[in-house]
Design a protein around this nucleic acid. Sequence first.
DNA 1: GTCGTCATGTAAGTTGTTACATGATTTG
DNA 2: CAAATCATGTAACAACTTACATGACGAC
Lengths: 190, 190
Amino acid sequence: MSLEHAILVSLLEQPASGYELARRFDRSIGRFWTATHQQIYRVLRQMAEDDRITGVEVGQENLPDKKIWSVTPAGRAALVDWLHAPVRPEAVRHELAVKIRGAAFDDAAGRATLVAEVERYRADHQSVLAGYLAGERRDFGDPAAPDARAALQHVVLRGGIAYERMVLAWLDDVLTTLRHLDPDPERPSA
Amino acid sequence: MSLEHAILVSLLEQPASGYELARRFDRSIGRFWTATHQQIYRVLRQMAEDDRITGVEVGQENLPDKKIWSVTPAGRAALVDWLHAPVRPEAVRHELAVKIRGAAFDDAAGRATLVAEVERYRADHQSVLAGYLAGERRDFGDPAAPDARAALQHVVLRGGIAYERMVLAWLDDVLTTLRHLDPDPERPSA
DNA sequence: GTCGTCATGTAAGTTGTTACATGATTTG
DNA sequence: CAAATCATGTAACAACTTACATGACGAC
């Protein structure tokens, strides 16, 4: 269960309630580890039982009480142990690649539908990249020497940026390939 | 359950037994959709119940019988429907990125262990890339105009190649960043 | 005679997803 | 006064992983 470790990292960076954590998993941490609030609450309860984290009730005016979770020494030790363990190969699940190979068994009209879908998908990734670049300017634009934490956060973000750029270039390749299979009869290519 | 669709694509490309499918998922298809034989057998049974595939028992000399599965018209229709549906955003799970951010909470000795692990991980990806490039030369080295199926298989493979190259470049960035945090005292850098 | 391959599965457990539920408060 | 946000969960289900099981064959 690596969600536990992602939560430990996030809580070490900054203690938070379950709700706040869930929002982080919609944003920064969610770039490389997704989780819903239901998963997070379940895992938090278990981590508290295992003494990896401790919670402090905080009353709020005009809002329900919340519980701020912090990492215990035992939790930090568990994280460090895990850091040194071998990285397990990721389970690859790339739906679009399956669809592209599947397009061989569809007709030209169907493939045109897929082209439209790939274009939409490409636009999504374009805006993810724009968000990453804006975040990079905001959080790492300062040319002063960063501390270890910022340097590591930045290199992970650079990974996200490199990934999105690679995806965009590949989607262009995909679109060219798909269109080449069924040249538009209105505007013949060459 | 997208495993069903990956199986449909693979069986349309070439009918196969469950065992043969499982080996394909260790190789070509597994590049973008992983599955174990247990998952495959379970899904095959269900797909047969839903009339997406039909199996023919084939007796073999000196080997156990096997069942060769083919896609039915209904299965093909189900695949085409799915091709036109929106691509769902992938659930990102990048363990190494979590570890890198976690390295901020480890000491220099621990980070040295992580560096070694990243190097090993990099070597894995290097050999995956080498395998892709060898496969590309073998299957797509012929400059003759490919048919639709081959063109689509090739563009998916090019995606895998682009991904591995991006990962290798990023891992170099990661290694530089990690080493910069703890310059080797024996060989000071500048 | 042990190991690897062919071939097919069951069982148990973990993880992840989807839907539903509650109740207060702020915003338009 | 409807909708969105804050905050926390339960329940049911779907998917995936790990371990175990069977039995024949060929290679070393």
